[in-house]
Design a protein around this nucleic acid. Structure first.
Lengths: 145, 145
DNA sequence: TTAATTGCAAATGGTTTGCAATATT
DNA sequence: AATATTGCAAACCATTTGCAATTAA
């Protein structure tokens, strides 16, 4: 059984919210596209093919809700869209993004060398870190040729 | 003499653009507020008090131009505004942002422990890095009490 | 002189909101 | 049955654009 849907279900009832078909399908679409950083409208399009009656507003409202519940998190590539990604409960979304300045491609890198940095910042600035967002800008292999 | 205005001047003439009063004043305002990450409209308001005839569109156009010329760079705090900061020519805008999830305060940290990470990414992924953008989310000293 | 720039007002486009109808608990 | 949720259309709001008037080179 899909754990994330379970998690959605319990978080919703916990707060007196309801589990609707629309909410289920929106989460399904995000799950099926993990790592693709879909924008709100891309999610809308994909949901629409499974459930054509859905309204755009429902998608926006659901994405906000999923973020509020900690099921999903927002990724910003400065391209004018809100993008969403599953935020795994195990805290392993510690990956970084390489954004190509020429073709716009986004590559993911999973390295976790940031812990030293976090520790040092926490010590020096008395700031309690709970998440980070790291983007590197440059040129991908093809574009740097 | 202010080096940055000189830099603006030469970059403009180099590309056949003109140095107008409006452009000068907009850069002045950004310079006077270094480290404050002013949004486009905050910049507009401050410019307006020095030059009331200015139009909002001119501010937006100038900010785009300054970014294109590499004089200024965009900072995104996911709050719906474009924010701008002077990009020093010496490449020392290698600072990170600590964004407090409770009060929204943004603290700057100047540490440069990211070079190892950049080197490793460049090696492993064949991606040529030219800049980075790092944000840590958490709770500032007051809010974590 | 002449090409770039400005200010204004209107347009754009992603996101949000009000509301009556509908679905979940 | 009671309340949350939906879909639609209209509103929002930061940013962009068209254009005639103005200004720097």
């Amino acid at each position: 059984m899909d754990t994330l849907i379970e998690r959605l279900k319990s978080k919703l009832t916990e707060k007196g919210y309801k589990l609707t078909t629309q909410r289920r399908i929106i989460l399904d679409v995000i799950l099926e596209n993990q790592g693709n950083h879909l924008s709100s409208e891309e999610i809308y399009d994909k949901v629409k093919s499974k459930y054509p009656e859905i309204g755009l507003a429902t998608v926006y409202r659901t994405l906000q809700l999923l973020e509020e519940l900690g099921i999903v998190y927002k990724v910003n590539f400065n391209d004018g869209y809100n993008r969403y990604e599953v935020s795994s409960s195990t805290g392993d979304h510690r990956h970084h993004h390489l954004v190509c300045l020429k073709c716009g491609k986004v590559i993911e890198v999973k390295l976790d060398l940031l812990e030293n940095l976090e520790n040092r910042i926490e010590k020096e600035s008395k700031f309690k870190i709970v998440d980070h967002n790291v983007k590197f800008f440059g040129y991908c292999e093809e574009c740097s040729k």
